Simulated assay, not measured.
Amino acid sequence: MKGKMRNNILLMMTAFIWGSSFVAQSTGMDYIGPFTFNSVRCLMGAAVLLPVIKFLDRQKKSVRSIERGKGKRLLLGGCCCGVLLGVASSLQQVGILYTSAGKAGFITALYILIVPIIRIFLGKKAGLKIWAGVALAVVGMYFLCITKGFAIGKGDLLVCICSVVFSLHILVIDYFSPRTDSVKLSCVQFLISGVMCAVPMLLIEKPSLEEIFAAWMPLIYAGVLSCGVAYTLQIIAQKDTDPAVASLLLSLESVFAALTGWAVLGERLSAREMSGCVLVFTAIILAQLPEKGRKVREDG
């Protein structure tokens, strides 16, 4: 029981760090552009994971932790995940320029619904609760994002697309993670994403070192805590935690995004937008509840 309680606390800490990082992403762009922010934070995340990898390798008591043939798989998986992460995080970061951190957090969390829908096309069945969650999410998104004249805001649209790309990112990680070292996979993907975002950073934004140093606090929070620490906490906690319980706890990210946006940035949601948030969060929770008579985790 103590172990389960510890893991649940770690997962809630992970959700809080990820949710509150939307505030860091928003405030960071007071000093630097979105591509600069993403490039630096991802490179910082990769650097933070290097000592973690060294520590885990020592724990395994293995001189060479990458077996023959796994090096190429790690590189391929890291590149695929890194490209998707770079695209998704860029869409999200630019979207936050035009929408609130709280709304971005709730919209991004829709990946929990989008993933099982995509899996239908891969031969995985979705239960009734998934479809009920999708229906609730659609209504919630309407209240949250659609303005007068049935027009969706630019920032909300970008974050919606970002949620779809994050869904693909999760599925690619689901494929490569069991086949290679997950922490090293994360490190490589952060490195690829950081280098990828550095291209538009240098071509379009051309930041100075002074501007980057001015954003040191949001960058450290989003890079070290969100990319490095939170990911490591998730790995540790999910080893002995029921996947459904873990998903429920991690879905609190959207709640923490809204709460920290309100507490730190003074963001306010209208009654209509708040209703949308409640419906989207209810849909996320509903999607994670296991169907009766079915295994929580399907084979294959």
Rank of each mutant, 00 (worst) to 15 (best):
Lys2Met: 08
Lys2Tyr: 02
Asn7Ile: 03
Met12Phe: 09
Ser20Cys: 09
Gln25His: 04
Met29Arg: 12
Asp30Tyr: 08
Phe37Asp: 12
Val40Cys: 02
Cys42Arg: 01
Ala47Met: 14
Lys54Leu: 15
Lys54Gln: 10
Asp57Ala: 06
Lys60Pro: 02
Lys60Trp: 00
Val63Phe: 02
Glu67Gln: 13
Arg68Lys: 14
Gly69Trp: 05
Leu75Asn: 13
Gly77Thr: 06
Gly78Ala: 13
Cys79Asp: 00
Cys79Gly: 02
Cys81Ser: 12
Leu85Thr: 08
Leu91Gly: 12
Gly95Asp: 05
Thr99His: 08
Ala104Tyr: 03
Ala104Arg: 01
Ala104Glu: 01
Ile107Gly: 13
Ala109Thr: 12
Gly123Asp: 05
Gly133Asp: 06
Ala137Phe: 05
Met141Leu: 15
Tyr142Cys: 10
Phe143Asn: 02
Cys145Asn: 11
Cys145Phe: 02
Gly153Ser: 11
Lys154Ala: 05
Leu157Asp: 00
Ile170His: 07
Ile173Ala: 14
Asp174Ala: 15
Phe176Lys: 10
Asp181Trp: 00
Gln189Thr: 11
Ile192Asn: 02
Gly194His: 06
Met201Lys: 06
Leu203Gly: 03
Glu205Trp: 13
Glu205Met: 12
Ser208Ile: 09
Ser208Gln: 11
Glu210Ala: 15
Ala215Ile: 01
Ala215Lys: 02
Met217Asn: 10
Met217Gln: 15
Met217Leu: 12
Met217Gly: 01
Ile220Leu: 12
Val224Ala: 07
Val224Lys: 00
Cys227Thr: 01
Gly228Pro: 09
Ala230Met: 05
Gln234Phe: 01
Pro243Asn: 06
Ala246His: 05
Leu250Met: 14
Glu253Asp: 13
Phe256Lys: 07
Ala258Asn: 05
Thr260Ile: 13
Met274Gln: 02
Cys277Lys: 02
Phe281Gln: 11
Glu291Pro: 06
Gly300Glu: 12
